[in-house]
Design a protein around this nucleic acid. Structure first.
Lengths: 337, 337
DNA sequence: CTGTTAGCGCGTTCAC
DNA sequence: GTGAACGCGCTAACAG
């Protein structure tokens, strides 16, 4: 457990010189540098980063707030952000809010207590007014999230466009009774998708029908449930737009179990392009989200903010989504890209 | 950006008293305590944890090393560990080694540089001799891993038993030509499963056949590939034990595509009990792993080690696995638990 | 080029 | 009950 002082003594030099060597400062003669390095090796010395951080007021740590990592979308996001972070010498602290505003606040305190240099919010539970004061302590970057009142950088995917192209695809296949099945409306991800969904509909002169709207579907079980809800309607939809491949898969599984043919009797679109889309039968038409790009951009912005020390500027970066057509919306023989 | 000094001044007291209030020390009169709290609120004061850590030699951070978080097994592990960690006031730093021994070493340095109080290894890339010296700087706990030469706590699942019960189940269904299809043999997880697989076979007087062994299957694509490799054998297996639900799903998908009936012509067992096992048709027989329990135990041990400051004791905690029988091994009509 | 010195913000003896 | 003073390990003036 040697300190810089020990190294200095062993090398017969001062702490300063050792520090200079550690930090690659100029103005250190080559022979002293050798001496220092020798001493460091001999002692197995490693600088104490706590002391460094206290001194330099930076931790090289970033907190990433997500609801739950088990969700494949967020796994992918964490995977990417961690990768880029470590490439740039930053460590990532993972913070699962589990949709609790209280937990979110606890994690935000990492910024106030100087444990991290910045916070990436990939999920927002509190009102922006509650979060805003934390900007006094460091940068906040929104990732896959957006808030009208937040004057901070926002890196996001064009969810509206995603909802639009998926729905338009269904319309082009001739469907007119199309159900909408997404997650909580609290997230602006879902609400943006709904806007795109509605836009496509209106372009075809179709009115949005509330009885075809399901706004609490997150998992495969929800897909199964919604399938039954749809089928019990007097006029069942012939197609459905879902906000997640898992939901789509659950729905398809249940449909098949009850003899409902996909896509002939019910066309289904998923979201995310997860592995499962190519494993199900039929394979699932879905919307691909360029998560890596978004992750990379979010980190890039974060690092820039940490250095520039100006946090309250609003900037929006948006990435386009892409429709991937598979069997769940187009009958087998006709499938083409 | 107020410090403890500012609070002290505003309250008309000394730093010491403020510190006592922060740390809930006794011997502070009630009125002074009120004064301090008032001042803290007024200033929006939050203690600087860097300074605290430097002083107290603890960071309340734990590093968790995994290969990649995208793997659902590790997602689940991270989810659980993070949950328990935050419950106990610890933050989790996520470290993806991506199977690189170099990256692993980089992350191990978090211990040496005092950025974390301990390291949980859920993946080991380096020889133990390389890792062992880090014990000078803090506790290491193995989670889902094991090393003969490592005198540290190990929390793991009984993978041998998992391989055994899955294989035995196939044998009981009458299968005699059973293929083995797992991931890299470098991990002792896979090798333990293979031991269990062989044990079951030998109990039925069957010899392990190397041509039925595939040891590089990790993803669904590998499942597809192995399916073809198996089918091209002069005597194809009638059943296969796989080390992952994804591999099993890929194999089943490919089998169906080529008119091979599951389970009638090929019975398939997966591993992990992931969502996909209930979405595929047929649903997939699999081995359930109590990841939460393992995670909780690993963290419990870690915290205990951090406090006790003795790191070099070997302890092994093992949790049993459980077979979940579904349609991919038992023909529909006969399915029972 | 090198060393001396002063904090970064906090917790903790040790006196009072 | 309370406060003065030291030091955790390091970096950055400043002086030489």
């Amino acid at each position: 457990m040697s300190t810089i002082e020990d190294v200095a003594k062993l090398a017969g030099l001062s702490r300063t010189t050792v520090s200079r060597v550690i930090n690659n400062h100029p103005y250190v003669s080559e022979d002293k540098r050798k001496l220092v390095i020798e001493a460091m090796n001999q002692l197995g010395y490693a600088p104490n980063s706590l002391a460094r951080s206290l001194r330099s007021q930076k931790t090289d740590m970033i907190a990433l707030l997500i609801p739950r990592i088990i969700n494949p979308f967020f796994s992918k996001l964490v995977e990417s952000i961690e990768m880029y972070a470590s490439e740039h010498g930053y460590q990532l602290i993972i913070c699962q809010t589990r949709y609790s505003s209280e937990k979110e606040l606890n994690y935000m305190n990492l910024l106030k207590t100087k444990q991290v240099d910045g916070v990436i919010l990939a999920s927002i539970q509190n009102d922006w007014e509650v979060l805003e004061p934390f900007l006094d302590y460091g940068p906040i970057v929104l990732c896959n999230e957006f808030n009208e009142r937040a004057n901070v950088p926002s890196v996001m995917l064009n969810q509206m466009y995603g909802g639009y192209i998926a729905t338009k695809h269904l319309l082009e296949q001739g469907h007119r009774r199309i159900a909408y099945c997404c997650g909580s409306t609290r997230s602006n991800v879902a609400s943006h998708r709904e806007i795109g969904f509605r836009k496509a509909l209106s372009e075809y002169g179709i009115e949005f029908d509330e009885q075809y709207a399901f706004r609490d579907a997150l998992h495969s079980e929800d897909g199964r449930r919604v399938f039954h809800q749809m089928m019990s309607l007097s006029e069942s939809p012939t197609a459905v737009f879902t906000g997640s491949d898992e939901v789509a898969a659950g729905m398809i599984s249940e449909a098949k179990k009850h003899g409902c043919k996909v896509p002939e009797e019910l066309a289904v679109v998923g979201f995310d392009n997860q592995t499962i889309t190519e494993l199900m039968e039929p394979t699932i038409t879905t919307v691909y989200q360029p998560v890596e790009k978004m992750a990379q951009k979010a980190l890039e912005i974060m690092i820039e903010k940490i250095h520039s020390r100006t946090y309250r500027q609003r900037e929006v970066y948006e990435f386009p989504l892409r429709l991937i057509i598979r069997e769940s919306t187009v009958s087998n023989k006709l499938t083409d890209q």
